[in-house]
């Protein structure tokens, strides 16, 4: 029997639909009327410098913060009004390390499985499968503390996949890793998008993580300054490559011109 991929189950609904979202920390505006949508089964890069608002946007998407202005939908489910339905479809790799260092890899993943209502027997099967996916099957019983930064990141990705999400959020997932680990993790996520039909939303400030075929959303000073396929963004910015386009777009951002706080 042919297995259904995530893509087969989505009926063309946007994986992520962010509509006119604004967010402030006191008087400081972190996001200003941010709007974009991500198609199911695509790899989308959220490109922005440090402080551009990427983590704030991810905190809103994952309902750590409430969306007070605008709306965010994950496969049609409003994150604020139907947070449970939305979060069930969402796998998250946070920028900060979030493994419990005193627990083993298996215990960390079991805990996550229980937070998604997955029983012990099913969890064991899934844990074995996701660790295989990220090439960490041999470290099941090792304490998280004993893993390298890259290995911890792989376990966090395995954890994010455990409940079979349709959309994977990765916030600066390669930060602090060596070149080889970065390339490996990025390749793994791209492979998952191709083979499983998962949508990936990859936040980064590193231009070399962007490929020509990617959908890219460029965030600068809390506003979306470009949204489209890389080649279109490069052309529209009248640049030779995405790196040059990014520099131009960031320079033109409203705050850079003194338009926002």
């Amino acid at each position: 029997m042919q297995q259904m991929t995530v893509l087969d189950q989505t009926n063309g609904t946007a994986a992520l639909d962010v509509a006119a979202v604004s967010h402030s920390y006191g008087p400081k505006k972190a996001l200003d009327t941010v709007s974009f949508a991500i198609a199911p089964g695509t790899f989308t890069v959220l490109l922005g410098l440090n402080g551009a608002g990427k983590t704030t946007l991810f905190s809103l998407i994952s309902h750590l913060y409430d969306t007070r202005q605008g709306s965010i939908r994950i496969f049609g489910h409003d994150v604020t009004r139907a947070s449970g339905e939305a979060l069930r479809r969402l796998g998250i790799v946070f920028q900060a390390r979030t493994l419990d260092l005193d627990l083993s890899v298996h215990q960390n993943l079991s805990y996550h499985a229980s937070l998604h209502g997955i029983g012990a027997r099913e969890a064991r099967k899934r844990i074995a499968a996701v660790l295989e996916t990220v090439d960490m099957a041999g470290r099941l019983n090792d304490k998280a503390r004993s893993l390298s930064g890259g290995q911890m990141r792989r376990v966090e990705i395995a954890r994010a996949l455990l409940h079979r999400p349709h959309l994977l959020l990765l916030d600066e997932a390669t930060v602090g890793l060596d070149v080889q680990s970065r390339a490996g993790i990025l390749a793994d996520i791209r492979r998952l998008v191709r083979s499983e039909g998962i949508s990936a939303f990859w936040a980064t400030h590193l231009i070399d993580e962007v490929e020509d075929s990617d959908h890219v959303v460029v965030l600068a000073e809390g506003t979306v300054v470009a949204d489209g396929v890389v080649s279109d963004v490069v052309r529209a910015a009248n640049a030779n490559n995405i790196g040059e386009a990014f520099s131009k777009l960031v320079r033109k951002a409203p705050a850079a011109q003194g338009a926002t706080a």
Partner: peptide
């Protein structure tokens, strides 16, 4: 908003 390329609606 300076937005040279805006994505189209995706369902």
């Amino acid at each position: 908003m300076n937005s040279p390329v805006q994505g189209k609606s995706i369902g």
